[in-house]
Design a protein around this nucleic acid. Structure first.
Lengths: 215, 215
DNA sequence: GTCTATACATTGATAGAC
DNA sequence: GTCTATCAATGTATAGAC
């Protein structure tokens, strides 16, 4: 060891700084978008000089891609499995609940993803075309099978997924609007529970399913 | 008249230029957000020198607010009435259909509105607190009345509105994702019809209502 | 009402001392 | 690995000739 007196081991410093930069970048990219966010503002928020950002990340796009990659990893880790033998009500309810919770625990990830797609998904087209399309295809296949087995009403599986997607993500992306209209400062645990249940009740019933957890 | 030889009367030139600038600004604000959009790019898209933008609009914020105002006018013109004596199925179905059509006819308006809220609604807080809250209050009151009359199941009216809102707007804001996943270049008229019907079927049925137009 | 030229701040990115 | 100083480029906005 050449630097035994330092507070953090060399690798630890890097790890900590990279983490701080990524967190700060996430904030700024939400507030101003990719083009609008400035490295200076990210540096200020991370408590580092501007040049240090460039020491860890070659340029702004590299940093942004690192943020996006984190988000996609998060997405993938939570996209659970479902099989044709499962109970549709249980699976869809769990999916809705998980997505609402994700909106609550990772609102900025959802927002950056949303802004990216609103702007035409210039840096996510590949992900959508490959991973996301594959994920969607598997779910619609299972839902088709559920309908063939008579487990639920016939609805377009793709648009059902879109419905679940949009209605749950709404609580993350539009939290400023939702909270203002609800006259609240932030979400409470019971809000998440209430939202999950309300959405599940309507959507499942809309597919001819009986919610497992009713209110 | 001092300029009888001009192609347009003085007021007409202004009107036409302002319109072109607003249209160009709408495009650029969608692509890069408020901070990221540059006046140069807006001028280029409008086919005018940069200084002319400042001739018609004091500064970037003034221009952005003009764009936002256009969007809010559009919103307000389409937020129709509903009364406790109406048939819930008809009213909700019309609302869903109108919102989906709006997503199709004015995707950029929806996107700018969405980005603004995602970024914390810094310039729309007032609108949400006044107009939008008032609008929501009136709808939830009517829906509450419908439920009291036994016309539909008991669901949280506010979150029902959010559900209709989010699921319909999704097709405008996330069109890049939706179209890529559907493997289409753009929406067709029949897509709009299909989407409206699918959403109506699930949501209305989810509220214990029978869709008037079924498939 | 139009448009060139320009002022002045901020941007992303780099060089180089420490 | 840190941070000051600095670059060229681009940003908003304005002055002033036409």
């Amino acid at each position: 060891m050449t630097e035994p007196s330092k507070k953090y081991r060399t690798g630890k410093i890097r790890e900590r700084n990279v983490e701080q930069i990524l967190a700060a970048a996430e904030h700024e990219f939400v507030l101003h978008g990719f083009k609008g966010a400035s490295i200076q503002a990210i540096a200020d928020r991370a408590g580092l000089p501007k040049a240090n950002i460039h020491y860890y990340f070659q340029n702004k796009l590299t940093l942004y891609n690192a943020v996006l990659e984190n988000i996609i990893d998060l997405w993938n880790s939570l996209l659970d499995e479902m099989s044709e033998d499962d109970d549709p009500a249980l699976v869809l309810e769990a999916l809705i609940r998980k997505k609402v919770e994700l909106s609550y625990t990772h609102p900025r990830a959802s927002k950056i993803f949303a802004m990216e797609i609103i702007q035409g998904a210039p840096r996510l087209k590949d992900y959508i075309r490959s991973d996301l399309r594959q994920w969607l295809r598997e779910r619609t296949r299972v839902i088709d099978s559920w309908m063939a087995q008579g487990k639920m009403n016939r609805v377009d599986p793709t648009h059902l997924i879109f419905l679940i997607w949009s209605s749950t993500q709404h609580y993350a992306d539009f939290d400023a609007q939702v909270l203002t209209l609800l006259n609240q400062a932030e979400y409470e645990a019971e809000d998440i529970e209430h939202i999950s249940r309300t959405l599940s009740n309507i959507i499942l019933k809309g597919c001819g399913l009986k919610p497992a957890v009713s209110d």
